[in-house]
Write a protein that binds this DNA or RNA. Structure first.
Lengths: 258, 258
DNA sequence: CGGGTATTTGACGACTGTCAACGCCAGTGG
DNA sequence: CCACTGGCGTTGACAGTCGTCAAATACCCG
């Protein structure tokens, strides 16, 4: 189960932060799509910075304050909550374009942790600047609310799956969700997808154990629905998977595109 | 499990809708707390109405469009998602003061259903009016985003519980959550609370079966932590419950108070 | 080659689900 | 007044999905 023992590589700020960090925002991030350039300027003028984090590196930790928001530019990030006994629940996998660090109690301790699963590039900017930006651009605030609402609905979907679906259905659902989100970002090769996550991570995302995840992957393989070796997923029978998992493709696709 | 057979009492609009429905908003609903009166006026001038729904009555249904938002004035409402095979996951229990019907895709079909668990009184107002109100009052929009963010975090807590806690821990958590939310609304009598929910509902909220919920209630009783008869909960040992359930009281209390 | 991590598999156990019976209670109709 | 019915709660017996433990394999990297 959870609890990778405590190695946490320090966060590294690039020595020479991008001068035009907004470019990655505008290019990659739904949040800023179509927002007038002048509303973004403050981000640049103050101390926006690009952050690079190695795999296993923590971006922020549950229970600790965190002064920044982040837009994920490249790589995979997992957001998770921990229980005292070492158990862990992955809340979601963040992909390029996602917005991280937002929570209701802006200045309070974070309610979850964020860890890089691959080498990760983030644009980070202080919350007070973000606040000014949101104040200056109601459109931006609306966008943020919309993004958050969608994440919320995705969380509800996961709650439904975890509470009321069998192990094999949950795994099928997770794989389909990741596949379709990645396809929308053009991170797939045909019907194949290289995943950066261990089976233990799938377990922590679905509420199962690593051993049982392994068994379910084998079952899906034996049913001819997927191929899975060396973390490379090939979806062989998407429709059958979708039926099995009660998976509605449209929802997740929208979610990625926003 | 889920799937009460299909009786759905029709929604009833009161023949004489409150002329000052805003009063219940302002009194009961965090959303409108402290918002300038003139921003609320449109709600009244147009066709805000009070809605009364009998127990088991559906307020809106997953998959169907719904033109209104609602503020819950009195009674309990459950929000849930259904699976094809009759299984059901309760997403949350809404209490007086809660805001219902908001979702990202404003005009699309609802992503979940809402059912009254008690006689329920709602203030309902059309989404287009709400939109104007939010446009007129950025403060109001911020408030909505904040409320939504908190519901989101509560959903994440439930995901953690459902994915990574044992049956007895989940039941303890659910009971504590309901108790503390109700206490913040002064719906408790001392350390007692009359719940309007069946054990089957607890099951659908925690991802268990009704039979097993019953066994867990008995265990909690045998441990001396609660008394539970005729849907009346008495919390005998809150601290022990909180430890068992990994329950952080402050979070849920804030949630109720906003 | 050695050590560490991830995956895979088997054996076993237990937590939770399933099925069924019974009791209680309220409502209903004869 | 009293069967009859349906919903809910309670309990027991049993089954099975899933967790636990352990060992073997594979792989990576120094």
């Amino acid at each position: 189960m959870g609890g990778k023992s405590g190695f946490v590589p320090p966060l590294e700020l690039r020595p020479q932060p991008h001068t035009r960090c907004a470019e990655c925002h505008v290019r990659a991030l739904a949040l800023f799509k179509g927002v007038p350039e002048e509303h973004l300027e403050p981000t640049q003028r103050f101390r926006s910075a690009q952050l690079v984090v190695a795999p296993q590196g923590r971006i922020y930790l549950e229970g600790e304050p965190n002064p920044n928001y982040y837009t994920l530019y490249e790589g995979w990030v997992m957001l998770y909550k921990s229980l005292g006994n070492g158990k862990r629940q992955i809340l979601r996998f963040a992909l390029p374009g996602d917005f991280l660090g937002f929570q209701r109690d802006v200045n309070g301790p974070m309610t979850h942790s964020a860890m890089a699963m691959t080498p990760v590039t983030l644009c980070c900017f202080p919350k007070e600047i973000a606040r000014d930006m949101f104040a200056a651009s109601p459109d931006l605030a609306t966008r943020l609310a919309s993004i958050n609402a969608r994440q919320y609905e995705l969380c509800e979907l996961h709650l439904l799956a975890t509470g009321r679906k069998s192990a094999i259905e949950r795994i099928a659902f997770l794989l389909l969700e990741l596949f379709h989100r990645c396809r929308a970002l053009e991170l797939t090769q045909g019907n194949a997808l290289q995943l950066p996550i261990a089976q233990e991570d799938m377990a922590d995302a679905t509420g199962l154990t690593p051993v049982h995840v392994n068994r379910m992957l084998r079952q899906l393989r034996e049913k001819g629905m997927i191929d899975y070796r060396d973390r490379r997923l090939v979806v062989l029978d998407g429709p059958a998977m979708a039926t099995l998992a009660n998976f509605n493709q449209s929802f997740v696709e929208e979610a990625a595109l926003l």
